[in-house]
C-alpha cells in the first residue's frame, strides 16, 4: 500500500467521522441526503461481499466493516432517531435513485470482467459509487448556506477520490502489469463530478463566507 492510497482511505474514514459527529452533536441531519447514504450502503454491501470468501488483510477487513456499519448507522439516525429524523427534509431530497441504480446495473451486466454474480455486483458497486454523491450535491445546491460540517464532509469525500487517482498513477508507475480500466474510468468520472463543488468550496473558504452553491 502506498502513501496516496493510505491517505485516501484515511480521508474517507475522516469524512464519515465528520458526518457522524455533525449528526450526533447537532442532533440534526439538515443538508444530508438520505438517498446518497442509502446508495453508499448498497455500494458497500455489493462490493464487500468478498468479506465472506476472501481475505486480503486485517486493515482491509476492518475498513470494509467500518464502511458498511457507519453508512448503516447514518441511515439509522436519519430514519429512526427520535430527534434527528425530524430534521430530515424529504421534500428537498427527491433525487430518483433508480435513475442511477438501473443504468449502473445494466452497465455492470454488459461491461464486466467475468459474468458471475459476485463479479457483476462488484462492478455494479464501482459504477454506482461514481454517481452516488449526486443526490447529495443536488441537495446542497438547494440548501442556502450549507452548514460547515456538511460542506467539509463532501469536501473530504471528494479529497478521498482525488487521492485515489494519485494512488493509481503511483501504482501504474511502480507495478508492472497493473491495470484496472473499469475502476480507473469510473474513478475519474467520480472525481470529475466534484470539480464544481471544489471550486465553490475553496472560493467560500478563501472569502471566509458560508458555502452556498449557485443553482
Amino acid at each position: 500500500m502506498n502513501i496516496f492510497r493510505f491517505a485516501g482511505d484515511m480521508t474517507h474514514l475522516l469524512s464519515i467521522i465528520v458526518l457522524l459527529l455533525k449528526i450526533n452533536a447537532t442532533k440534526s441531519c439538515a443538508g444530508v441526503s438520505l438517498k446518497t447514504q442509502e446508495l453508499y450502503l448498497l455500494v458497500f454491501v455489493t462490493r464487500y461481499l468478498d468479506l465472506l470468501y476472501s481475505y486480503i488483510s486485517l486493515y482491509n477487513t476492518f475498513m470494509k466493516l467500518f464502511f458498511i456499519c457507519s453508512s448503516g448507522c447514518v441511515i439509522w439516525y436519519i430514519r429512526e432517531h427520535k430527534t434527528v429524523s425530524q430534521t430530515y427534509d424529504s421534500a428537498q431530497d427527491t433525487f430518483r435513485v433508480l435513475f442511477l441504480a438501473c443504468p449502473c446495473m445494466i452497465l455492470a451486466l454488459t461491461v464486466n470482467h467475468d459474468f458471475t454474480v459476485t463479479e457483476v455486483l462488484w462492478t455494479f458497486s464501482i459504477y454506482l459509487e461514481a454517481v452516488a454523491i449526486l443526490p447529495q450535491l443536488v441537495l446542497l445546491q438547494r440548501t442556502k448556506n450549507v452548514d460547515t460540517l456538511t460542506g467539509n464532509y463532501v469536501f473530504l469525500l471528494g479529497g478521498y477520490r482525488a487521492l485515489y487517482l494519485l494512488n493509481w498513477i503511483y501504482r501504474i508507475l511502480t507495478e508492472p502489469g497493473y491495470r484496472q480500466w473499469i475502476v480507473w474510468i469510473s474513478g475519474t468520472i467520480q472525481t470529475a463530478i466534484y470539480c464544481d463543488f471544489f471550486y465553490y468550496y475553496i472560493k467560500s473558504w478563501r472569502n471566509n463566507e458560508r458555502l452556498s452553491l449557485p443553482s
Partner: peptide, 10 residues
Amino acid sequence: PDDAPPKDEL
C-alpha cells in the same frame, strides 16, 4: 474482457 483486476483496494 481482459483478466480480472486486483481487488486489494477498498
